[in-house]
Structures are given as C-alpha cells and as structure tokens.
Design a protein around this nucleic acid. Structure first.
Lengths: 220, 220
DNA sequence: CCGCTCATGTAACAGGTTACATGATTTA
DNA sequence: TAAATCATGTAACCTGTTACATGAGCGG
C-alpha cells in the first residue's frame, strides 16, 4: 500500500488537485511512482476520509472548479512512519525485456522496431527530466543546489529517473544495433531469403538458428 | 497478461520445473521479470491446460519427483504473436524513491541506512549478473559472443539488469553521501542537537528547514 | 534436532488496469 | 467542427501479494 505514501510525498511540495497529481504520476513524468488518474482520485478520497490530507474547493472563472489537497499533520506523521520501516525491493517488469529474452525465437524486424521506439521514448524523457532539474535548481549550479537548496528530495528522485532513462536509451540503442547485425548476418549467410525485411524466424522444423560456433564475420 | 509470456520466454532455454522457474524469477535474479512461486505454479497450470507448455514427470531417487516443462509449438506461436504487438511502457514503482522524494520531511538517519542497504543489494546483484554473463559467454569474448553466439536474448536482458543495478548502486551511494552531508550541515548549524544520531526532522512548528539560500560550507 | 533446500500447491486479500461516464472550454 | 485540456469519478476485471499447508532429505 505505497500509493498512499507516494501521494503524500507528492503533496509535500504544495497543494495539488487530483488532475494535477494525475499529470505528475503519468507516463511522461512518474519520477518516483506511477499511477492512473482513477487510482489517484480514489486514493485522495480515502486519504481525506482518514484525515491524512485535506482539500479545499477552488472555484475558477473559466475552468471547472477543482479541489486542492494538502498533507495534514496526521498525514506527515504517517509518511514519517512509512519512511522509517524497511523498504521492499523493487523489481523489473517489462514487456520489452520479455520480448528481447525471446529474441532468438521471434521476428527480428518487429522487435528491432520496438526497441528503437523505446530508445526514442527514453530520449524524450531524458529531455523532460533535464528541463525539470534545471527548473528546480534555478540559478544555482547542481553542486550548490544539492548542498544547500531547500528540498533535495524531488531533485534526487528526478536524478534517478534521468539516469534510468539514460541507461534505457543506451541499452536500447546497443540492443537494436546487435539485433540488426545478427539479422543481417543470418540473411547474408542464407543466400538471400525471400520476402521483404528479413523474417529471421526459423520455421518450426529448422533447428534453432544453428549458428556456427566460430564465424569469420559473414556479410560486410 | 505478460507473466505467461515471461514464463514461455524463460522456458525457451530448456526444460524447467516450477521450482527452478521460481528461482529464476526470484529476488536475486529476475533478469527480465519478477514473480513469486505461487504465481508460477498457477501460471504453469493455466499454460498447460491451454496447451502452450507441456510437462513430463521426472522421478528422482533422493529428491521428490518434479515436473519439467517445455514450450509447445502452440506456445512458441503465442510468444511470437506477443512479441509482434506493441509493448506497453514500463514504470518505476519503488518504495525507496517515495521515501527519498520525502527526504526533506523525514528522519534522515533511517533513510540513509536504507539507501546504503539498497546500494549493497545492488552491488550483490551486480556480482551475480557478472557471473551469469561470464557463464553464458563461456570461452568467447563479449564482442564475439554478441556477434556470433547462439541465443543472445538472455545475454541482452542480463546486460540490462546489470546496467540497471549499476545505476542503482551509483545513485544510492551519491544519494547517501548527499543526505549525510546535509544532515551534518543542519546539525552543525543548530549548535549541537541533543540525542544520538541527529534526528533532522524539524518539529511540525519549525518552518521546513529554512536553509540559507547561499551558504559558506558549514562544518568541515 | 533445527533449519535449509527441494517440490508443490490453495485461499483470501490488496492493488492495478480497462472500460465507461460526464461536461465545459480552449486551441487547431 | 474536431480534438485536446481541464476536472472528476464508478464499476468490472485482472494481476500480484500474503498467509497458510504439506512432506521428505540433507548439513551443521
């Protein structure tokens, strides 16, 4: 049940509406946690009922009215309690990695496309995180901000997000290159396979690739 | 519903029992997916009922009998279908990051301990992944294996795991150092706070840290 | 003898995702 | 005029976690 604590942590930087929270926990950002809008509205309702957050209605001229939430004293206490007890380890769970795990038994073209797409997504996130970091530190240099800035928490989680996406991008690029090379090598070795692209999926009967143990770089 | 595909992908490298699968998807490893034993036994049962995997009973002398599962043709087809359609993006969801996000409002000592513990865990995983990679590539150098080895899939996902844990370790170390420095600075500025450790949690009344905007490195 | 590894599950519950619903306003 | 943004939710479903259960052999 860490979503509630993620919400509390997100609200420490000031009042936010459900909608604004939803953006912060969305695909594009999600520095330190991810959740869908529905989860957030539900969680806010629960937190309010338990007195861990409180909301105030703000009527707007041009936009629908919204409710801005902030953490109560009880909420802060709960967050501190949470922070004190042991963290459960976090795990990788990624569709794309499952596909790469099966790379040798699966259509190479489609996989390469997905890995490249992921690299592009990572690149976009990197830009976003860099902008966010610049905004957070303002005039100060990074060293200085980290030493003396108020609230490093969000800065640190954003740094983790940045490093994660850089790792993602680098791995995706390398993986795409490797899969392309191997695919080309197979196609070259097989004396021109028919069909566009180069399927690289051996028929059920063909033994799994049967790649020669040592090979004097076929093709190029 | 990607667990099924993760299981299929894991079984591509040869027959495995539920127990062996469980180890592969466990805390220590989890190259590309994580799951608990119960999930795996349940998923294997479903997959078998649908004909995507098949198991054969192996009686052992000294150990209880086990069932070794392998992917059927139908299973391979399903995996290929899965690999072809779009991957959903993967998200960060980490207790520890939530706590670091709240770092400025929370007991620093406990948090630093947890970050350091995480760094140690990452280090252990790094060693493990390095061993696994060495074993996979055998006599070949990495370059060579990647170009010409049979089955790069597992190697590539393990490389991602390695890079992820390296990123984790580096970030944890840096974060721990930063939090320690800031904690020391606060304690130094406050003319010796009572109690062991240094709480660093400002009372509810004390304004959030009120750290001076520019500071001439307090302490050391 | 205690605890670990091997080996396999069931049941209850908590948490996350997908689909659906509504309605006003601004931008292309 | 169509699409995106602001703003908030409900309901059904799928997935993952926690707790419990069983039993044999091996090592300290």
């Amino acid at each position: 049940m860490a979503l509630r604590h993620a919400v509390l942590a997100a609200l420490l930087d000031g009042e936010l509406s459900g909608y604004q929270l939803a953006k912060a926990f969305d695909v594009g950002v999600a520095n330190f946690w991810h959740a869908l809008p529905q989860q957030l509205y539900a969680e806010l309702a629960r937190l309010e009922k338990e007195g861990l957050v409180a909301g105030r209605r703000v009527v707007q001229e041009t936009r629908p009215a919204k409710r801005l939430f902030h953490v109560t004293d009880a909420g802060l206490t709960e967050l501190q309690r949470f922070a004190a007890d042991a963290s459960k380890p976090s795990f990788i769970r990624d569709d794309l990695l499952v596909k790469v795990q099966a790379a040798d038994h699966v259509d190479a073209g489609a996989l390469i496309r997905q890995v490249e797409e992921r690299a592009a997504m990572a690149e976009a996130k990197i830009d976003l995180f860099r902008r966010i970091l610049r905004k957070m530190r303002g005039d100060l240099g990074e060293e200085e901000f980290i030493r003396a800035g108020r609230r490093v928490g969000p800065y640190l989680t954003c740094l983790r997000g940045l490093a994660f996406e850089e790792g993602n991008r680098d791995w995706c690029r390398r993986t795409a290159a490797i899969l392309r090379d191997r695919n080309a090598a197979v196609a070259g070795g097989n004396a021109a396979v028919a069909g566009e692209g180069t399927p690289a999926v051996p028929g059920e009967s063909t033994a799994p690739a049967a790649r020669p143990p040592e090979v004097a770089r076929a093709g190029r």
